[in-house]
Design a protein around this nucleic acid. Structure first.
Length: 493
RNA sequence: GGUUUCGUGGCCGAGUGGCUAGGCAGCGGUCUGCAAAACCGUGUACAGCGGUUCGACUCCGCUCGAAACCUCCA
């Protein structure tokens, strides 16, 4: 199948055809979490977005090396003035070794990403494990003359860099504005210019996370790890770099500058950014009280949640929006997603029970099923348009259900085609999986068959009292009985 | 104040210079002992005001509104 994949490159603000630098290999780097707190909704969106990209590239036959870092060197806390790093603060509060904090929350992150059926990346490097690479990169930038050292800290010289290159090309910022908008600070600032950023920061005596370097004990600047680790594992020039839009500036802008300065050219061909999530139209933030962790979603233990939402509901909901749109969470919207997903999965189950009609099979590549498959590929090729893929899958469900109602006929190749579409797009690419409760299927199955057989007998004698009693009792156990022409079906909610 | 994304029917959310996205909810019908599910039908939606055009929700400008980042800091 000819697939021309177009992806939106933030650098050019246009959709560009995806051409791998070294086919069949494709390299992708995505900014991962800083592990100092429980994973929340804000972590789910980029993870799922780039999981979709990963899965689709794999499906197209690329040998993908997907690198997503774990930031276990804390960056400074925004709402504290002391300049302590996030992980160190957490460590002090919880009376733990900083690495204990990082390990604990990294493990938590993996658990919840697994629940969301996010594939593990090929490599998950940690910043703390790449100090040497980072120090070497700082040294290289110093050697090239784009950085300066002050009192054991090293800063990137944005003004000098801007004489040769365009700092701001990714985020649309203009250096003059950055400088003009900046007030002069009191003497304590070591930076030559407000736009400069730290490559290496000297550790104050009380700072716990520290490493020796040519400039004394300190820790790396927060843009540096991504530059160092992406180029270490993916090479000087790789295909895709992804992350949230919140990272556009200054993080990714600075990564571009660091690589340009250290390597002599840019390291990324396509920049991809997912949009943010709001809750009831408001930004998600700790101060607003609408900061919901994934655990709270899965268990329903948050004041603003009317019920628990399963991992697949969250995943499906995120995929129902295009990754570059803002996405608004609300109970109503999540419940709609929950029902929609169940409808899709029920349709797939129905498909497995359909018998082919003896209609003459259509030639390969023709007919509505082939059209459906084509529209799924077209949607994915158009910058990973998962909402349109989902719309096509619902069209498939409509056809399946019509056939089950004996209102339409499906030939054997059409049935196979539908199954291929669902297996490929719903499960393989969108990464949805069935969430059947319990693993004692055989016992439950047997019991249900027995119960339904007894109920069928009562129905045959028009003993509706018994029949309804059984159905109501099962409903209380969250088991729904559906009476059809060919007997009764059941499913667990 | 700046940069960037947006503003679509009751809710969520695609898309397009002229041709029904889709889901959820609602309404009417079919089926059913009842119910559920399913199927069929059903919505003069594109923030506001100008402009370009034979024609704009889609392009341009302005206004209003939302979000992210920056404006203090790494």
């Amino acid at each position: 199948m000819e697939n021309q994949l177009f992806i939106h490159n933030t650098l050019t603000r246009t959709k560009e055809i995806f051409e791998a630098i070294n086919p069949p290999f494709a390299g992708m780097y995505v900014c991962g979490p800083t592990v100092y707190g429980d994973p929340h909704l804000g972590h789910a969106r980029p993870a799922i977005t780039f999981d979709l990209v990963f899965r689709y590239l794999l499906h197209l036959g690329y040998k993908v090396r997907y690198v997503r870092n774990i930031t276990d060197v804390g960056h400074l806390v925004a709402d504290l003035d002391e300049g302590e790093d996030k992980i160190a603060v957490k460590a002090r509060v919880e009376q733990l070794e900083p690495m204990e904090v990082a390990q604990y929350y990294a493990d938590r992150y993996f658990i919840y990403m697994d629940a969301l059926n996010v594939k593990r990346p090929s490599i998950e490097p940690r910043a703390s494990g790449h100090m040497i690479e980072q120090i070497l990169m700082v040294q290289k930038i110093l050697d090239e003359g784009y950085a300066y050292e002050v009192n054991g800290s090293v800063y990137f010289d944005v003004e000098k860099y801007s004489k040769s290159y365009n700092y701001g090309k990714l985020s649309g910022r203009i250096l003059e504005d950055l400088l003009a908008n900046t007030r002069t600070l009191e003497g304590q600032d070591e930076k030559h210019n407000a736009a400069d950023f730290a490559l290496w920061k000297k550790a104050q005596p009380e700072h716990i996370m520290r490493w020796p370097s040519p400039w004394g004990d300190g820790f790396p600047g927060w843009h540096l790890e991504c530059s160092a680790m992406s180029t270490k594992y993916l090479g000087d020039y790789f295909d895709i770099h992804g992350g949230g839009m919140d990272l556009l500036f200054p993080h990714h802008e600075s990564e571009i500058a660091q690589c340009q300065a250290a390597i002599g050219h840019e390291s990324v061909k396509y920049w991809l950014h997912n949009n943010m999530i709001t809750i009831n139209g408001q930004k998600m933030g700790k101060s607003l009280g609408n900061f919901i962790t994934l655990d709270q979603f899965f268990t329903g233990t948050h004041a603003s949640l009317q019920q628990a939402y399963s991992p697949m509901t969250i995943r499906f909901f995120i995929l129902q929006a295009h990754y570059r749109s803002t996405l608004d969470f609300s109970n109503e919207a999540l419940q709609a997603a929950d029902k929609g997903l169940k409808k899709l999965l029920a349709g797939y189950e129905t498909l497995g029970k359909l018998m082919p009609s003896p209609l003459a099979p259509l030639p390969e590549g023709e007919g509505r099923i082939a059209d459906l498959q084509r529209s799924c590929y077209d949607a994915m090729n158009d910058d990973f348009n998962s909402p349109m893929v989902i719309a096509s899958l619902f069209e498939g469900v409509r056809i399946i259900n019509s056939a089950a109602d004996k209102k339409e006929d499906l030939s054997s190749p059409e049935l196979t085609g539908l199954k291929t579409i669902f297996d490929t797009f719903l499960f393989e690419i969108l990464g949805i999986k069935e969430e059947k409760g319990g693993d004692n299927h055989e016992v439950v199955d047997g019991l249900m068959q027995l119960v339904l057989a007894i109920r069928q007998k009562s129905r045959e004698t028009k003993d509706w009292g018994t029949s309804d009693q059984i159905r109501d009792a099962l409903q209380k156990l969250k088991i729904t009985v559906k009476d059809g022409k060919d007997g009764s079906a059941w499913n667990i909610e």
